Amino acid sequence: HYVHVPASAGASLPPVVFIHGASANLKDQMLPLRPLLEGRAEMLFLDRPGFGWSERGGNDTLAAQADTIALLMDRLHIGKAIIVAHSFGGAITTAFARQHPDRTAGLVFLSPASHPWPGGATAWYYKLTAVPVVGWLFSQTLAYPAGMAQIGDATACVFSPNKVPEGYIGNASIPLVLKPSAFRANAVDVAQLYDYARSASPHYREIKAPTVVISGDRDKIVYATIHSVGLQRDISGAELVWVHNLGHKPDWIAPDLVVGAIEKVAGAPVDLQALAKTVEGRIADDAYNDGKCPDIKVPDAELAPT
């Protein structure tokens, strides 16, 4: 399931393909970013296999999802594109860039997940749902009511310390992830992330596309000092843009900075650090849900499995 926005006669940017993160669907990037790029670029927003209204098919690995996205680009005659990835979508994008370098015009990572973290821990319900039979029963019976009871608080922590946009949960169709099939797909994806990152990250140096990484220093979902710093270190020439007091959602809180990053990897002389300062000025006083959603800390390296 996808939304394809063809290029207009005045398009000045290469095609842009958007890859959403865990627990999301194509609307999560389309709603804030499409209006800013309309008429400037051909755009492809897609529900990753198993999410939103896409069926899972044989796409249980990150590599398979990357290949399926490339096949969709073939169908739509998109030869080469800038890939914009949020959160878990960052890991899939590293697979895409390695498996399809000829299709990769540039990379923009937003609060990405990409590298192994000490301990490799994820939420208990991901592990439970990924277990055969028991996980199926959980996703079919308890996941929806339990998830709906927690969805407001969980969303607040995704955005914190920034404010959740009015109507975000409904407008972005976030409850779609609680469909039993989507819930299981999400769990299978997250459960394999650590092993993927351990095996794939030593090869990120093979990625040669122009790259920008945008992260907030108040991200409460992923360890930005591991993932974002790691991408800057491992991808030659990558630019890391730190934004003070930004949480996990640059696509919604700093869409102008995201567009600037797209322009930068397309070759425009954009000062992303100056743009980041502008964003910081807008959100300097944000402190939403700080008490409810504490900053995450990198776990002790001794917890890492051998």
Rank of each mutant, 00 (worst) to 15 (best):
Y2G: 10
V5Q: 11
A9T: 06
G10E: 14
G10R: 05
S12D: 12
R34C: 05
L37A: 06
R40I: 00
F45I: 05
G50R: 06
S54V: 09
G57A: 07
N59F: 03
T61K: 09
A63L: 12
D67P: 03
I69V: 14
M73E: 02
L76Y: 02
K80C: 12
A81V: 02
A91W: 00
P116M: 10
P118Y: 07
G135D: 09
F138E: 10
F138W: 13
Q140A: 15
T141A: 11
T141S: 15
A143F: 13
P145M: 15
G147Q: 08
T155A: 13
G167M: 10
V177C: 02
K179T: 11
P180Q: 08
N186C: 02
S199Y: 08
E206I: 04
I207F: 04
I207V: 14
I207S: 04
I221V: 15
Y223E: 12
T225S: 11
H227R: 02
V229L: 13
G230S: 11
S236Y: 12
E239T: 10
L240E: 10
H244P: 07
L246S: 01
L246N: 00
K249A: 04
P250F: 02
V258T: 01
A266M: 02
V270I: 15
Q273F: 09
A276W: 02
D286K: 00
D295E: 12
V298D: 03
D300S: 14
